[in-house]
Design a protein around this nucleic acid. Structure first.
Lengths: 216, 216
DNA sequence: TAGATTGTTAATCGATTAACAATC
DNA sequence: TAGATTGTTAATCGATTAACAATC
């Protein structure tokens, strides 16, 4: 099978497709078309069909797409059925918020354990997730081999922790520290949630909108 | 002045530039070049110069760029000196994490007040931010006219709250609910932090990396 | 001055859009 | 069958890269 390159733009649209399929099914709509999908997401129908055709042919000419089947395809492509497990490193505010408010399993990922360096935090359970002392992390990683580590530590601790994670076989880091972890020589996947970048973009858009209004 | 269109890609790179200028200055480096910048960010020098030239000419031929001056230009473009204010709507886990761990003022935004519907939460201060009952929100908005609302409520409350914010003159919503707030007819700026989209992209990359390794 | 590096135009590349034959 | 809508190729558009004159 020839592996064609999938652009980042396409990858970032896949979760959007997934969400609207869930919404369609919740509304009892089991059949859709590239036109309907494009309309819901503000894309063109062409683009929707091109995106899907990166991975195969999921529709039927003259009919459209079966929502459930297409949903299952996209879920598969996203790796939602691989049974990935994740550990949380840092159970402070943001870590707590992730455990309590974010439904990992909804996206096919099982959060198995949290770790924190503060003995006032470790030892307890949060919503059924046990928080272990950070010292136990390397051993846990070697024994349980989770694919994903969620890094939710203060900035300062980010880099050394990332190295420890990589040394112990973690495949991907979901990075909530506002620190860049780019270690080009390391073949680890880093997905950043940079709040500041997002807020600054918002600030730019506000500024641009105000300036263009002033000009009129 | 002719307003040229700035692509989203360029806008998303501006905060990255800002961050490395801060890093350079922290290391006592006060002069840089498009080559150095591109190297630090994994771009091409051409692209860096093109990006800056969207907004004007900030460098000196034969010399390069003064880091502090360039930093100030980018900060201005991003609206960091406009004195924007923000209110937090929802002081649950994620709201707490934002108040306690995220430094709004570092990015030129002043968080002035938080609001929550839970009387056990409202009435207190968190890190110097007063939490008011949610009922006081409309009046506060009309009186104080903050540009930005940070929406950190449960999914269910997202849409009606967004409408209330828009009705009361908020210009931009920083959206931490995992709900899409696209109201095309409303001229409000929405910047989403969608954790699930990010995790799913990470899951895709893990899957792609595993499959390509298996194939070899 | 010579060397360096910008600002900017031109060339290339890749992504989006349009078009349409295939076919359900 | 006729109508609809896909899968896929071709055309267009926009973003990135290359090149180089301007100039510090």
């Amino acid at each position: 099978m020839k592996k064609k390159h999938i652009s980042n733009n396409v990858i970032r649209r896949l979760p959007k497709y997934l969400h609207i399929f869930d919404k369609l099914m919740a509304n009892g709509i089991f059949r859709t078309s590239s036109y309907q999908i494009s309309d819901l997401l503000g894309l063109t129908a062409s683009q929707v069909r091109q995106d899907f055709n990166c991975f195969g042919a999921f529709g039927q000419q003259g009919y459209g797409y079966d929502v459930a089947a297409l949903r299952a395809q996209i879920a598969d492509i996203l790796g939602m059925n691989r049974g990935y497990t994740a550990v949380l490193v840092g159970a402070g505010n943001i870590g707590h918020a992730l455990i309590e408010d974010f439904n990992f399993s909804e996206w096919g990922v099982t959060l198995t354990r949290a770790f924190d360096g503060d003995p006032h935090i470790s030892g307890k359970d949060i919503c059924g997730i046990h928080v272990s002392p950070i010292e136990e992390l390397p051993n846990y990683l070697r024994t349980n081999r989770p694919e994903i580590a969620v890094l939710a530590l203060p900035k300062e601790a980010a880099k050394p922790s990332a190295e420890l994670l990589i040394e112990n076989g973690v495949k991907a880091i979901w990075n909530f520290t506002n620190e860049d972890l780019v270690e080009p020589e390391n073949p680890v996947i880093v997905e950043n949630i940079h709040f500041s970048d997002s807020l600054l973009a918002l600030s730019y858009f506000v500024t641009a909108a105000m300036d263009s209004k002033k000009k009129k």
